[in-house]
Design a protein around this nucleic acid. Structure first.
Ligand code: SF4
Ligand code: SF4
Lengths: 169, 169
DNA sequence: CCAAATAGCACTGATTTGGTGCGCAATCAT
DNA sequence: ATGATTGCGCACCAAATCAGTGCTATTTGG
């Protein structure tokens, strides 16, 4: 129900872990020894992340994975997009927000819904999706990795979202 | 992949439709005659929405459903929450954001994950989820129904999110 | 009474998701 | 060289979720 998949979570954990190991290749073993993650599944996730261009891989005894870009240059959106396709809050048209940093093609099935022309919520729902997408885009790996976790607060939207959340609504 | 279910979409369409029919009971038939929605399924959705306290129902020949509150007093979050459980971007602890307007209990399974203590992304991921949740909360049925659709732009977060979205990232 | 509408319950089929098995290929330490 | 370690490719399974349906009972207006 509107939640990230386990695969994505594992991927994010791995990515965050690598933020603390800059410049070195870290193996899947190390990661799933640190956290309780099914080794085999994590391998699959890392593979995907690698093919998406977020990670560099190196085989062999001292092999592993390494962040390609600086932690602040990779967004959660890129990870999510790689692991579960471009986020959409509906089956509607492909995201107008083209993440130019992503190396993978947009694999949205176009406007899959058969009532696109008459749908009264199409446009507003897309705007909503773009809002979510924007949030994910604005959160970098650095934000996620922050120990004391300024996280979302680090970007201009953070405080607003936090305060908005406290509204009685 | 991080998207609303069909049920939720149908529910939102129905709700928006009722915004234009204030004060009268509108039948499921009318709605699924207007839009291409499986009648039987829509009925199920409306039932749920009704039990959640968002709609008032009336049986019999001239029966149907009607919005309980004003359109600006019902949020998309409430609809989503009723139709697919409280939004969460992870299997983590129940949402700290208690929507006091909701009449249904929070049915989160608590902290389902078995690595909650050691998980490095738990806190930031929750903050992310709260951001999304906040977005949904801030969008009212009125926003959704707006013909020219100011929608998300109508609330203080809208413009920021919109502009943020145009950043090269 | 009859037609129209919600309420309740159970159920099927398709899709997604979490997770695994296994052999192959590359690489490094010894 | 050789074996241990690591990633790669591909196929596969089981559980959960989701879209959608059937049928019957109950309420209500005409
Ligand atoms: S057109 Fe409407 S019902 Fe169809 S996918 Fe888009 S928002 Fe959903
Ligand atoms: S503790 Fe970490 S891995 Fe577990 S559900 Fe929460 S965010 Fe996901």
């Amino acid at each position: 129900m509107l939640q990230l998949t386990k695969r994505t979570e594992y991927g994010l954990i791995a990515l965050v872990h690598m933020v603390d190991r800059p410049g070195v290749f870290v193996s899947a073993r190390e990661i799933c020894d640190t956290y309780k993650v099914p080794r085999r599944l994590l391998a699959e996730v890392l593979k995907t992340l690698s093919k998406a261009g977020l990670l560099a891989s190196h085989r062999g005894a001292t092999g592993g994975y390494m962040l390609v870009r600086e932690p602040e240059l990779t967004s959660v959106a890129q990870a999510v997009s790689a692991l579960e396709g471009n986020p959409a809050s509906s089956s509607c048209s492909p995201s107008p927000v083209d993440d130019s940093n992503s190396l993978f093609p947009i694999l949205d099935s176009g406007s899959g819904c058969d009532m696109s022309p008459t749908c009264p919520i199409k446009t507003p729902i897309q705007r909503l999706r773009d809002g979510i997408w924007s949030l994910l885009q604005q959160t970098s790996l650095r934000d996620l990795a922050a120990p004391t976790a300024a996280a979302v607060n680090a970007n201009p939207l953070g405080e607003l979202l936090q305060s908005a959340q406290t509204l009685t609504y």
